[in-house]
Nucleic acid binder design. Structure first.
Lengths: 246, 246
DNA sequence: GGTTGAACGGCACGTTACGTGCTGTTTTAT
DNA sequence: ATAAAACAGCACGTAACGTGCCGTTCAACC
């Protein structure tokens, strides 16, 4: 049997905290001396170690109490529930991460903070239920959506895109058949093919979505002006290619 | 100019909260009536919207105050810092996720909660600094480690592995040349090749690490007994294959 | 120019989750 | 006997974000 001080030393939990666990009924001593000093047995040591483990796994003290009260405890259910909670939280952080990343890119492109964009992003995620995906429903199949959303550009490729779009915005005044517009269009097309391959059906759905939605925040940084510019430049490019073939 | 009530209606923030923001100096009114009623201008509306946006992005009110106090605010630095924080938190959640997932698999394999395993997992992550990777250093190159850790089995494949190991544990008493042991060894090898391909050098490093470390928690559920059993069975299998070729 | 709704100042309290501090007394070990 | 350890009990701390309530004053509308 251990006194509270010995248990404290053995486990690294302060006496005061053990006091507290006793108080809230999480870890009760097995016995007491005549004088009222608390005594903890091996079972209690085990229970304390379990408590610490569950705490590490992210359970609240209250939840731990609930779980340990059952006999036998439904470990599998509790752990599964916790796993789902962690997954939820991960999803939330992923959204946050994407938002921050997107805003940082927008600063690189526009060299200033685009507040309307931020408000747009906020609303998109705040009114829950993934507004984003609902919008895509109008333009493409579920598989195509997956393809679109699963594009995982690495840092380098993303930087390239950001640089390209920045350059396009700097050159919006150029005519669509100017060399610079043609060069930008070529780089654009190359990037698109690199990301999605030659899947023409998919590209056409995506292009539809982008041209229709580019007033919103959905396809930032492919804003209306950028999309229009590149559309015109590509038209010219394809016409030229047709003439060359003829 | 808006009274505090109008601002509240416009933005959805309660009067009481605007009181509070005034109190902590986060959002001060632009002016006041003779009677002392607070008046907010367009600039304040903008500032409030920025505050809400930053709050959504995970900044604390205190941090927001610090950022907005600068002129001009260093948005890029603040957002980058926040991004790093989110990434840290994501990493923490990933560890937690892996721990929970691992424990759940161990329950499926052993049909009971393996507390020593949980304590082991706890210690591995608690003493920070990724103990896990340090151990691997002794057995393989950095690239091989990446290969090992980046194996992303899907749910189905993972379930197959778990089922296989469960079966192995049920059959530890079988002789290595029994049909069942041979069949288990075959499934094991097939799974390994599916995951890592025919990279013999890598497989040998990995096998070294696994046989040496299988007393610990590092390669759970490849525990000592399972690894020994499968090693023997594979030896027999290869000997037979050699004889057949001769 | 009175009624009513809005806003005021000020101070305390609430929430969640987890403890910590402090005091004065009793018990235990040596 | 003395000192270290444990006791009971009650308040307080932290961190981040507010909320509740009260009695008083102001502003708008008919």
């Amino acid at each position: 049997m251990y006194t509270i001080g010995q248990l404290s030393k053995k486990t690294g939990v302060t006496v005061r905290t053990l006091d507290y666990y006793d108080e809230i009924g999480l870890l009760k001593p097995a016995a007491a001396t005549e004088g009222g000093h608390r005594l903890y047995g091996d079972q209690e040591v085990m229970r304390l170690e379990q408590i610490l483990a569950l705490k590490y796994l992210g359970f609240s003290l209250e939840k731990i109490q609930l779980i340990l009260r059952e006999s036998p405890p439904s470990w599998e259910a509790a752990l599964t529930e916790q796993l789902l909670m962690v997954e939820e939280e991960k999803k939330r952080l992923d959204d946050l991460h994407r938002s921050l990343q997107g805003i940082l890119y927008s600063i690189q492109i526009e060299k200033q903070v685009n507040w309307p964009l931020i408000f747009g992003v906020m609303h998109m995620f705040q009114q829950g239920e993934r507004e984003a995906i609902k919008v895509l429903d109008r333009y493409m199949s579920r598989e195509q959506q997956d393809k679109m959303l699963s594009v995982n550009m690495d840092q380098h490729k993303m930087d390239q895109w950001v640089a390209l779009i920045y350059e396009i915005r700097e050159n919006l005044h150029e005519s669509p058949d100017s060399p610079i517009a043609q060069q930008l269009a070529a780089r654009w097309m190359e990037g698109v093919y690199e990301m999605f391959g030659q899947d023409d059906e998919f590209l056409s759905s995506a292009w539809n979505a982008i041209t229709e939605e580019s007033d919103g925040v959905m396809f930032y940084p492919m804003t209306r002006d950028v999309v229009d510019f590149i559309t015109e430049a590509i038209k010219v490019k394809e016409k030229k290619a047709g003439e060359a073939n003829a």
